[in-house]
């Protein structure tokens, strides 16, 4: 069974339909890259899945729990109970484009905040886990630093550690490297590759084609609110038959 099922998602802002009809599944351990031109609705899709936006229609299930569905008779989106939504929320993590670290907390506190105050873990356990995560992110020794003292790449790695501290079953990335220069991008890609090796289920909205090709085992190409094509990286990047996909990818060929 798919860990994430997305069916017929629609979403508009002020009459502008950003998502028209989006359906796809994500299997356990899969690394899915969502690519497409700016304004194609990639980030909006991620935000709908993460409950940061309310979809206008469709259905999403996470790990067998239905987050919302559309009551076709009343043409209304019906959400799960507050408790269920909260449970779902703790199963998914999101890494933001601009990190959104808490500036008034140091690195350690950023990572332990949710485990201690949401999961009610003891401070010792949370800090022990945070140290392990920081080591994994190559940030040992930075636990007392404040976000403003770190480079963009370091901040993004802290925000990945913060999301991982809740042990999510799926980790979403919303253009995690867009705010970083190419050199720092490499740091993030390395971390994501490490996570992929550990069979972490990830969905990544990205503009890094090389990276989508390298790490993802499933690629979704979106344009104008639809999924134009999806498949393995080899299929999409190697020999797509779709004209729109070809046209888009052509811009990234050297």
């Amino acid at each position: 069974m798919a860990i994430l099922e997305v069916k017929n998602i629609a979403k508009s802002f002020d009459g502008n339909q950003v998502l028209k009809d989006i359906s796809f599944n994500v299997e356990q351990g899969q690394v899915v890259a969502i690519i497409g031109p700016s304004g194609s609705g990639k980030s909006t899709l991620l935000r709908c899945i993460n409950q940061l936006e309310k979809a206008d229609g469709g259905e999403i299930c996470v790990d067998g729990t239905r987050m919302f569905y559309t009551d076709s008779e009343r043409n209304k989106v019906v959400y799960a109970s507050k408790q269920e939504l909260r449970d779902i929320r703790l199963k998914i993590g999101l890494v933001f484009q601009n990190f959104n670290l808490f500036p008034h907390f140091n690195v350690m506190h950023n990572i332990t905040e949710a485990p201690v105050h949401v999961l009610k873990k003891s401070k010792e356990d949370a800090e022990k886990q945070a140290m392990e995560l920081l080591e994994k992110m190559g940030l040992t020794g930075k636990e007392k630093a404040y976000p403003c003292e770190l480079s963009g790449g370091q901040q993004q790695r802290v925000s990945i550690a913060r999301a991982l501290a809740l042990k999510p079953q799926i980790l979403f990335f919303d253009e995690p490297t867009s705010a970083l220069d190419p050199e720092l991008t490499g740091e993030i890609l390395k971390v994501i590759k490490e996570l992929a090796k550990e069979k972490m289920t990830m969905v990544i909205v990205t503009h890094e084609m090389a990276f989508a090709r390298d790490v993802a085992n499933h690629v979704i190409f979106m344009d104008e609110g639809y999924i134009v094509e999806e498949g393995s990286p080899d299929e999409l990047f190697g020999n797509t038959q779709n004209d729109r996909t070809k046209q888009f990818l052509a811009r990234f060929k050297d």
């Binding site: 993590g93 959104n100 105050h117």
Partner: peptide
């Protein structure tokens, strides 16, 4: 707004 969104993604309540 990102501060609210980050907190909500971490499962924090509105009050927290």
């Amino acid at each position: 707004k990102g501060q609210y969104e980050a907190a909500s993604m971490l499962g924090m309540t509105k009050m927290q």
